[in-house]
């Protein structure tokens, strides 16, 4: 189809205008966050729009580390992240592999249960789980946050692995088995190395869900400041001081939570889409 060059010009201008305006609107809250995080205390309470901080208060960043136990928060958050990644890499891949490749009696029933649990909202389990962990004395500890994650209690990850593993040709599996490779060996030597996209995608999910988790740390760790995660620390900074004159520190803290996420997504974005969609897991 031959298009009139002038019409084409107009079309491109419309497209770029929409995209540019939209992108600016989307980025403004983040730009404002960066700018506010670099403002001095007296500048944040000026009731006039001032996007470029003057002077630039770089010292806000080191100051927050002094004012709040950021390193401790980070360490606590990393405990949950590591538990999450372990669960995503070992028990979840094994289960996904079994559902995809090992025939065992009742496999379809178990898989049906797995799918059903994906639909089960957390709210109907919240209270009994809290009472249970309270009963065994695990509240105010990492236990309730770690145990489910270490066991790979995440149907979504297992489902993604299973979908991906099913896409690996059966011939490869068969020839490895004929050559005397055990199930464990097939999983470790063939499926895991071939599954980088889905591993990357699930790792990103595992990292970001653990990094962002708020409700669980709130319920289980809320009364034990020693074990607070970054999310709880940030909430306390804004909720406790709550005054407008600590807005710059709140934004410094927000930046500290955002930057690792940006790094993880930057390195993982290539795999994110291919790992999740390549095998058709989103198509019905």
């Amino acid at each position: 189809m031959i298009e009139d060059p002038r019409a084409k010009m107009v079309r491109y201008m419309v497209i770029y205008t929409i995209l540019t305006v939209g992108a600016i609107v989307m980025m403004v809250p983040l730009l404002w966050t960066v700018s506010t995080s670099l403002k001095t205390r007296d500048k944040i309470t000026i009731r006039r729009l001032e996007l470029i901080p003057d002077p630039v208060a770089w010292e806000n960043y080191p100051y927050l580390f002094e004012a709040r136990p950021i390193l401790q928060y980070t360490r606590n958050t990393m405990v949950i992240v590591v538990a999450s990644l372990f669960g995503a890499w070992v028990p979840c891949t094994l289960a996904g592999y079994a559902f995809a490749r090992i025939p065992f009696p009742g496999r379809n029933i178990f898989f049906g249960i797995l799918l059903a649990t994906m639909m089960l909202p957390y709210v109907v389990r919240l209270i009994p789980l809290f009472l249970f962990f309270d009963e065994i004395g695990w509240t105010r500890t990492f236990g309730p946050l770690i145990l489910p994650r270490v066991l790979g209690h995440n149907a979504f990850y297992i489902f993604l692995y299973r979908q991906f593993f099913r896409g690996i040709p059966e011939d490869i599996y068969d020839s490895a088995r004929i050559d005397g490779c055990s199930e464990f060996g097939v999983w470790w030597r063939i499926f895991m190395p071939m599954s980088r996209p889905v591993l990357a995608a699930v790792s990103i999910f595992a990292f970001s869900f653990a990094w962002n988790d708020f409700l669980n740390p709130l319920i289980y760790l809320g009364s034990n400041k020693e074990l607070w995660t970054l999310a709880l620390g940030l909430n306390a900074l804004q909720g406790f001081e709550g005054e407008d004159n600590s807005l710059n520190l709140i934004m410094v803290f927000s930046m500290l939570m955002i930057i690792p996420m940006l790094i993880v997504f930057y390195f993982g974005q290539k795999h994110l889409i291919s790992g999740v969609t390549a095998q058709g897991s989103l198509k019905g």
């Binding site: 989307m26 980025m27 809250p29 983040l30 404002w32 966050t33 970001s208 990094w211 962002n212 708020f214 999310a231 940030l234 909430n235 804004q238 709140i250 934004m251 803290f253 927000s254 939570m257 955002i258 996420m261 940006l262 997504f265």
Partner: peptide
């Protein structure tokens, strides 16, 4: 913006 942790997005 959708990568920003929910707590941070809310506080922002």
């Amino acid at each position: 913006p959708s990568v920003v942790p929910l707590v941070a997005a809310t506080v922002i």
